[in-house]
Design a protein around this nucleic acid. Structure first.
Lengths: 136, 136
DNA sequence: CGCATTTTGGTACTTTAGTATGAGGTAGTT
DNA sequence: AACTACCTCATACTAAAGTACCAAAATGCG
């Protein structure tokens, strides 16, 4: 909210500067009015692009962005989170075990704990929940 | 590419219009130069926002957009696609059966066929593949 | 150090998932 | 009518996934 005020303040300020510029050019004849107008056009064109880009990024967090708040709130341990990511890639318990140099039963333990913490019945549901929360 | 040319053509045209406007106001004194400048600022500000929005949407297809080409290329049947979506929501075969008023064995058949067509070993992998292809 | 948590792993068992195969019904096509 | 593709369902089996319970290391912290 604060930023919005500041931004529009700057916008109005720059408009005023252009007013002065135009008056100056009017009196001294040193600057052509076309140049002033072109400058205004370019500056505000760029400002439009810039502001729009920022607001878009705010309203839709860029895909890969993780929600670290929710991630902490779940208190998944490091290993559990690691396993969760592998699960979401579609690996079996055995494959995850081989990838992380752990036994299959260890993975089962981790997955079981993950299901409890994510409040899921199956690993597929855990994937869905995790994606919805932007945890993975 | 064509659109870009047209757009910038229009941009230059509108600038010229503003030039004429300013000259007219200069001669007749009917319009104040400030108003012209303000108009230029507003118009190009809006144009900047608009163009930026369009280009952003082009480079990053808006989340929910499905890749219909790949979807057809897989030749999943209607039912199979329907089941795939339920699988991706984390439902079990039994739950999917109840939701679609089908027996569990029917769902198993569909899932098996889906796995073959998506070239996946497990349903979790099918989910991952389908999401990567923007099929679901 | 002592304590709590995490990590690892095992056994035993139940539940889902997935495969293979067959088979009856429907709908559209040639 | 014959053919093809799809949808449905069943049985029988194998393979994963998941639960419950236990227990020994490893780790991190006051």
């Amino acid at each position: 909210m604060k930023k919005t005020v500041v931004t529009f303040g700057l916008l109005i300020l720059s408009l005023l500067v252009f007013f002065q510029l135009s008056k100056y050019s009017f009196v001294s004849g040193g600057l052509k009015i076309e140049i002033v107008i072109a400058a205004v056009a370019i500056v505000f064109f760029i400002i439009g692009i810039y502001l729009n880009k920022r607001s878009l990024h705010q309203e839709r967090p860029p895909e890969g962005e993780l929600d670290l708040h929710k991630l902490k709130a779940l208190d998944l341990s490091n290993r559990e989170y690691e396993v969760l990511k592998e699960v979401s890639l579609g690996l079996s318990n055995k494959e995850i075990g081989e990838k992380l140099f752990l036994s299959e039963s260890t993975i089962k333990t981790h997955v079981s704990n993950i299901l409890v913490k994510l409040n899921a019945k199956r690993r597929t549901q855990a994937i869905q929940i995790a994606k919805e929360m932007r945890i993975i």
